[in-house]
Computed example of a mutant assay.
Amino acid sequence: MQDPFPIPPVPWLAELVQPWCDRFNLTTLPLHIHEVVAAALLYSVVFWPISPLISHFLAPDHYSKLPRKRRLNWDAHVVSMVQSCLINALAIWVILVDDERRAMTWEERIWGYTGGCALIQALAAGYFLWDLIVTSLNLDVFGIGTLAHAMAALLVYSLGFRPLVNYYSPIFILWELSTPFLNIHWFMDKMGMTGTRAQLYNGFLLLGSFFTCRLLFGTYHSYCVMGDFWRATRSPPGIEKLVSSSMAFADEGATVPVWAALAYLSSNLTLNFLNFYWFFKMISAVRKRFQPAKGAVEPVTEVEVDLSTVVASIPEKAQPRRRKA
């Protein structure tokens, strides 16, 4: 599949990053660097001024009273909402229409490349580039943990430009199908809608999408990518495999670097473990919102987990807070 992005590669931008790409063996990044930059600019504009303008219009009684730190956190959730909806829709579209991707062998799933999969990779990298910049400029708000997450996620997504497991980029992005419901849940809490019927229905959608996309769909494909990596360590591609157009960037006898495989698999396994942990914590948090209060004041733990995206990334944050029932 050809890259569906409507803007062609920018020659001067590709030449600018070419030395770095050669040094770190990011072979396909020059073809998609303009998409990474475009995504980062899009999310920057959503963060400011679009989010403040829309939030002042839709929730003037809530947004205008927020202090600086909570307002920045609100705007970051707006970006997360836009990013998750956009990239989920594009990932589903690529999975459905990319016939070349669908016909890939295990060798092509490891070393192969299609423009559609690379576009998803680039948009995800652009989001984490934006995340890294915003977190660095507002470290007092988002904390060192979020900064570490942004750096690690950007590193992992960049591996796809070697290319490496380019095939799996739209699959693991679909873990984010639960993120819109999580953001809605978060906004309802901030707007005084905790415990409402609307939040209950959204909670069912959140738990159902999280269980289906992350625990079932995600765990199964984590098993698949581990199997492909295992085959790659035992049988590198031969010359007969390189005639495929999707293997245009692979070399005969290519191997997967140990550090790259460990970085990808360790982050994937870590997130899979946390997915199960988060699921049970979310069940507990949703239940507490709808349990009758036993007294005038009953502490309720609100577990916030910003699940931004990704294919094989590290959790952004999980910050417990207490609120009155």
Rank of each mutant, 00 (worst) to 15 (best):
Q121S: 15
I171L: 14
R109Y: 08
N275P: 02
I171A: 01
R23H: 14
V97G: 00
G218I: 08
W130D: 03
A153R: 10
P299W: 09
G208F: 12
H221F: 11
P11K: 01
I144H: 07
S267D: 02
M193Q: 13
L123D: 00
Q18I: 05
G238M: 09
A254W: 05
L265R: 00
Q319W: 11
L307N: 07
H34V: 11
T27N: 06
P49G: 07
Q83S: 04
T196Y: 09
G126F: 07
R71C: 08
A124Q: 11
F161C: 00
M188I: 13
L205D: 00
F279A: 09
S64W: 04
I95S: 01
K281A: 15
D131F: 15
L41A: 15
K324M: 03
F128M: 01
L137Y: 03
N138R: 12
Y113K: 14
L129Q: 08
I7R: 00
V79G: 00
M188S: 01
T219M: 03
Q319P: 08
W74N: 14
V36G: 04
D131I: 11
L262E: 02
V37I: 13
I171V: 09
I95M: 13
F217Q: 10
V10I: 15
E304T: 06
R162E: 04
E35S: 14
R101Y: 06
A39D: 01
I87K: 02
P9L: 06
R109I: 10
L72P: 01
V305E: 03
M226T: 07
I120A: 00
I54Y: 00
L58A: 11
S266D: 02
L42Y: 08
R101F: 00
D189W: 05
R214M: 06
W175H: 15
I239G: 06
K190P: 05
E302A: 12
A153C: 05
V78Q: 13
S51D: 06
A38K: 05
R289G: 07
C213N: 02
I171Q: 01
T194Y: 07
V97C: 01
L41M: 12
E304P: 02
W230P: 02
F57T: 12
T105P: 04
T105C: 04
F57R: 15
A148L: 15
K317Y: 09
S136A: 15
F276K: 04
H62Y: 15
F211P: 00
V243G: 01
K281P: 03
E252K: 08
V79N: 02
G253F: 10
T194E: 08
A250H: 04
Y157L: 14
